[in-house]
Amino acid sequence: MTTATTAIAPPLLALTGVRKEYVPRRGLFGGAAEPVRAVDGVSLSVDRGETLGLVGESGCGKSTLARIILRLVAPSAGTLRLDGQDVTRLSRARARAYRRRVQMIFQDPYSSLNPRMRIDTLLREPLLIHGLARGGAIEAEVERLLSQVGLATDALSRYPHEFSGGQRQRLAIARAIAVSPEVMVADEPVSALDVSIRAQVLNLLADLQQARSLAYLFISHDIAVVAYLSHRIAVMYQGVIVETGPAREVLRHPQHPYTEILLAAVPVPHPRLRNQAVRHPTGETSVPHGAPSGCRYVARCPIMQRRCQVEPPELHALADGHFVACHLR
């Protein structure tokens, strides 16, 4: 995966071997606290106009990964590249420049908008910080942003609490696209929204991608939602990517047993299909402590073998662009 020659343009955003360890706080009586590996050697890339869907359950490290990409959290190891340039460590000025190119939409639109700021102020802020518009131009720009996310300009003088969840998520999107970013990280952007509103926001994201050839890293626990927007899908389990490939390929021919279980667990779309699906995956995710000796999935894996317990599997290619980290596939 890292064999990019100079002839091929580097991907827009690329992560190589990114790791993040947390040292849990010690209890009152000490006790050897082993670091928790939230993210353990993740490599992935996103290109212009492309959506990489990142699927995983709670605690798998997907949100930590998002925060690393947004430089809200410093990785313990690994590199972050934007357009081939190492952006893992940046000076303050260059960090600001980075923020113009990489933006994020958060899960909860109720807490991601400052409750004491008017919409007007919220939308102006990114423009002012980055000096993107001045004077009257700001107003025009703010109005343009609002109309792009499908809101009327009478929203400007109001406060976030006056809007519904879906509208707030639109506002958060407007704020994120204000700086005309190239990469957008969306961390569960629709899971806090009503069902009838989800489709609106998903379609808005799709439209924005087309209009601005944005690169999305779309993070969700809901594989059906991820599948709707994604060109490629990466499946994350306990801090590592266990499978990645073109969306349709992964959905139709899942290779990793965990991907299979995730797909099997998606509720059926019609009651009549109820009994046809393979059912009842067992076991639950636990927090990884330290470095496991073998595959992280052994505890739940139905096809586990001896080798899996001692040797961690590497991601290897199966077909064009389809990689899986499993000894048995």
Binding site: L72, D108, L113, R116, E125, I129
Partner: peptide, 28 residues
């Protein structure tokens, strides 16, 4: 709260986050 992170993402510095974002929520 996420809005602090959101401000960071937008590019706000420490001073701005304290004065513009945190204080208005702390002072009342």
């Amino acid at each position: 709260k996420t809005y602090v992170e959101a401000a960071q993402v937008v590019g706000a510095g420490h001073a701005r986050i304290i004065v513009r974002h945190l204080l208005p929520n702390v002072v009342p």
